[in-house]
Design a protein around this nucleic acid. Structure first.
Lengths: 232, 232
DNA sequence: CGAGACTTTGATAGATGTCAAACAGTGTGG
DNA sequence: CCACACTGTTTGACATCTATCAAAGTCTCG
């Protein structure tokens, strides 16, 4: 059922806007590359709402609305596989277990947003940036466990800043400070955490991908493989 | 199916903590009063994540996790009707349309959080407070259309501040400024918007409760009454 | 190798937090 | 029904953090 969604595909370029705010909704599977959703403020600034990674279905948290409440843009070059809204109807009507899975994905994404809200509202610049880095790693290592040690971060600093209410300059300063504090190491675009434990406790980081409970899922018990369900 | 969830009930007092962060999850229907979810920062400050109003089912965005990632506290005196997690299994397995409805609620709440994230990250204090006030009105007038003109706001200023990353003092200053600008009028705890149009365009406010699309719902078409579905 | 995009660094300004004290509203008990 | 205690709000002074501006430095890709 799900693999049928990936029938057609197209490439996207870094910085390309895929969907504008207020346009009709669109759904797609992200095959490769990183993508983000955003809204603009009345004075023209930008807030990034969510990051999406290869394997994600993008747009599911917009299907309840007639028009898209946010825009979508590509952070890197990539490939997307668009599919129609009706493609989801099959999922919701035919498999209640798959529906619960989608619901779970939505809640995990929601939890990530809540963590960023907390950071944006109540934490200093360096810790906000640290949160974004740890969130990226948490998501990436689901697909590729070796990313736990070090991963490539293709985001520009103004993109990071727009996720957590900072300017690109403050992101630069925060990274410098994180390096001096021994919390983050950078080699080119590769990120690692020399004092992983300290970094996580410093911001009370919780990896929501590893706290999933499926006991409430409908149907027979023991779905199995919950840890990697995002992989689809 | 849903009315069975409200079998038992108990009263709660203003300021009472109903669920602590990290406790096992709990679900309840909120009969009366206002309730909010929150997380603490490592340095002991508080971020409020969501407000809940009479009629809401509280805790649904936590069921995916083994432990509650946030706490729940009462903003006013009220009455709650707790029910077990298994109560939701019936909903998810027996009615795919009801499931889609729950999914829709989750997305509407999510959209409200995203709006606050945008405000917290990128908008000045007065406009952030204005957003919270407009969000409260939007939710309240679903149940009671007369609240569109004026509604009672039982929240203390530090609670409002914790929703959008401000101190209680900045909230006070913001309200003063909003009053001077003719955007918000207060009589005791009653709030109204003298220049409603201007207030909404100033922050690009969108009332997500009135933009719902149910065309993707499973089952026969024409559910009807989508505008007030939150009322249950 | 060169042009453009991105990052880093420094100086300054503005917004919000913190602290402290006065003020107002609310509920309770006599 | 009033006085009092408590909770919450308002105001002002000051400190801190982050944004903005500007310029130098670095990387990347053609």
């Amino acid at each position: 059922m799900l693999s049928e969604l990936e029938r057609e595909s197209r490439t996207v370029r870094r910085h390309e806007t895929l969907v504008d705010e207020g346009e009709p909704n669109r759904l797609f599977v992200l095959d490769s590359g990183w993508v983000y959703t955003f809204i603009h403020t009345p004075d023209g600034r930008r807030q990034i709402l969510d990051l999406h990674f290869p394997g994600d279905i993008v747009g599911t948290n917009q299907i309840a609305f007639a028009e898209s409440t946010c825009g979508i843009a590509a952070a890197t070059d990539g490939v997307i596989c668009p599919f129609p809204k009706s493609g989801l109807r099959g999922v919701f009507s035919k498999s209640s277990k798959l529906t619960a899975l989608f619901y779970t994905f939505a809640m995990i994404d929601h939890a990530a947003v809540l963590d960023r809200l907390r950071a944006t509202g109540r934490m200093p610049a360096a810790l906000r940036v640290l949160l974004v880095l740890l969130q990226c790693r948490a998501r990436l290592r689901i697909m590729e466990p070796s990313y736990a040690d070090a991963f490539e971060l293709p985001l520009q600093q103004d993109v990071i800043g727009d996720m957590i209410g900072l300017s690109n300059i403050s992101v630069s300063n925060a990274l410098k400070q994180l390096k001096e504090d021994g919390l983050v190491a950078r080699q080119g675009r590769w990120i690692s955490f020399p004092s992983e434990e300290r970094a996580m406790t410093l911001i009370d980081f919780a990896d929501h991908y590893y706290e999933i409970d499926t006991s409430w899922f409908p149907g027979p018990q023991g779905a199995g493989g919950e840890q990697r369900i995002k992989a689809l």
